[in-house]
């Protein structure tokens, strides 16, 4: 029911054992060189260069490749060569499972086909975002997955509204927020009214009667919903080659007049019009 990693899918389905997957991961760890290791293997840098770059990373929020280019250790062209070599020699988990004897090629092909069918509900659809947005494909995927999980997890029918650029977050009955870090940074928020909060709780608690539930439980339902959405966004990003991490979700409390965004932030609001006229709002607050 979620965005999955192929190896995870195989273990979950009982197609391969835990021992086999651990052996295959070990083989991947041995064969799939990290960027620095590949650059050393290609004779473009020394181990000391990489060590210095790692030290630099402790005080500079940069990816290793960007840092190596920024400090003149690698040219843009050399970095592209290293990345291309990494891709060309990458051992995928399915191939690793064949190499350790857990699957044969025919079984692998059959399981990949079944995996594609399992994951088909999460194939991306287009979402309109403002032009020129950094990491646009990733944020588009985050919005698209939100829509899909509103349907699949909450069971709500809705019409997505047009994306609006905003300079502040509106006050709402509950605003749940979660921060993304890693290859892309941004804050993901969902704002709901009391009736929509109740609908979310009804879906997650699998009951029509939630009026007696304490506020903490009602709020926790929306927090868990965004945790599930953002975890699945990180999983999908991982399939697409981007590393995202997430923090536990929290509630934020904008004042009645709204919470202005900082000068270095840009805000996007995606209204989600529920079929009975209620509104749920998804916000992305991204660095400019």
């Amino acid at each position: 029911m979620a965005v999955k990693f192929f190896g995870q899918y195989l273990v979950e389905k009982g197609v391969v054992s835990r021992e086999a997957i651990v052996e295959a991961i070990a083989l991947q760890d041995k064969q799939n060189l990290k960027l620095g290791e590949m650059a050393i293997a290609m004779g473009l840098v020394t181990p000391a260069d990489i060590e210095r770059a790692h030290q630099n990373q402790l005080s500079r929020d940069m990816k290793l490749g960007d840092l190596l280019v920024g400090t003149g250790i690698l040219s843009e062209g050399q970095l592209a060569e290293v990345v291309a070599r990494q891709k060309a020699t990458h051992l995928y988990i399915g191939e690793a499972l064949v190499q350790v004897g857990a699957l044969d090629n025919e079984q692998l092909a059959r399981q990949l086909e079944a995996f594609k069918i399992d994951q088909a509900p999460y194939l991306g659809e287009s979402v309109q975002l403002p032009p020129g947005l950094a990491n646009s494909a990733l944020w588009e995927m985050a919005v698209d997955l939100t829509y899909k999980l509103v349907t699949r997890v909450l069971g709500l029918r809705f019409r997505p509204g047009t994306c609006q650029v905003v300079t502040q977050l509106s006050a709402a009955h509950q605003v749940a927020a979660l921060d993304f870090a890693g290859d892309a940074k941004g804050r993901y928020l969902v704002a709901v009214s009391a009736p929509v909060q109740k609908k979310v709780a009804q879906a997650l608690l699998h009951t029509a009667v939630v009026d007696h539930e304490p506020l903490e439980v009602l709020e926790d339902c929306l927090l868990e919903f965004i945790n599930v959405v953002c975890g699945n966004v990180a999983a999908k990003a991982s399939q697409q080659g981007s590393a995202l991490s997430i923090n536990p979700p929290v509630n934020i409390h904008p004042p009645a007049t709204g919470l202005p965004l900082a000068a270095q932030e840009q805000g996007l609001c995606f209204p989600i019009h529920l079929e009975d006229g209620d509104l749920m709002e998804l916000y992305l607050v991204l660095p400019k």
């Binding site: 979620a2 965005v3 999955k4 990693f5 190896g7 995870q8 988990i93 945790n227 599930v228 959405v229 953002c230 975890g231 699945n232 990180a234 999983a235 999908k236 991982s238 399939q239 590393a243 995202l244 997430i246």
Partner: peptide, 9 residues
């Protein structure tokens, strides 16, 4: 929710 992230898995 992070089970599908290959590094986490």
């Amino acid at each position: 929710s992070l089970g599908g992230v290959s590094d986490n898995f």
